[in-house]
Amino acid sequence: MRTGAPAQHHGYYHEAVRYDRDDELLAVVVPFLLGGVDAGEPTYVALGEHTAALVRAALPARCGVEFLPGGEMYARPASAIRSYRQLLAEQVAAGARQIRIIGEVPRSAFGATWDWWARYESAINHAYDDFPLWSMCAYDARVTPPEVLADVARTHPRFATADGRHVPSSAWTPPTAYLRENRAIVPDPLQAGPPTIELADPTAAAARAAVHLADRGQVPADDLDDLVVAVSETVTNALRHGRPPVRLRVWSGADRIVATVGDGGDGPADPFCGLLPASHDDAPGGLGLWITYQSCSHVTWHRDDDGYTLRLTVGNLPTGG
Rank of each mutant, 00 (worst) to 15 (best):
D115S: 10
A192L: 12
Y12K: 00
A109I: 04
G267F: 10
A192W: 05
L289P: 01
E147T: 04
G48M: 12
A109K: 00
V231D: 02
A61E: 15
P69H: 10
D282N: 08
H10P: 01
T260A: 11
D266F: 02
L312S: 02
A209W: 01
P318W: 08
G267D: 05
A160W: 07
Q86N: 05
H280V: 13
R180W: 05
A127H: 07
L227S: 08
L68D: 01
V55L: 06
W117S: 10
R158Y: 07
R119A: 12
G40L: 11
H212G: 12
D130F: 08
Q8H: 14
D281M: 06
A112V: 15
G36V: 06
E72K: 11
L227E: 05
L248P: 02
D140Y: 10
G288A: 15
P145C: 11
A200H: 12
Y293H: 14
P60S: 07
G36H: 08
R56H: 15
A192M: 07
V186E: 14
L190S: 05
G95K: 05
P42N: 04
I185T: 11
T260N: 08
S108A: 14
A254Q: 13
T234D: 06
P168G: 05
P157G: 14
A204N: 01
R216L: 03
G274Q: 02
A127D: 01
L33A: 06
A127L: 07
A78R: 00
D115Y: 03
I197T: 15
T43M: 02
W251Y: 10
P77E: 03
P271T: 05
R142F: 13
G265Q: 09
P318K: 01
G267Y: 06
A278P: 03
E147P: 00
D151I: 05
G274R: 01
A96K: 10
A259K: 00
R183V: 05
A210M: 08
P318V: 01
H241T: 07
Q294M: 14
L179W: 10
A160L: 14
G265S: 10
P202I: 03
T309V: 15
F272T: 02
L59Y: 08
S83M: 13
V261W: 04
H14L: 05
E72Y: 08
T196G: 15
A57Y: 05
H302G: 09
P277Y: 02
G103Y: 02
A184S: 11
P31K: 05
P202A: 13
V17Y: 00
L54S: 03
V258A: 09
A160I: 10
A94M: 02
V235N: 08
P69K: 10
S169P: 11
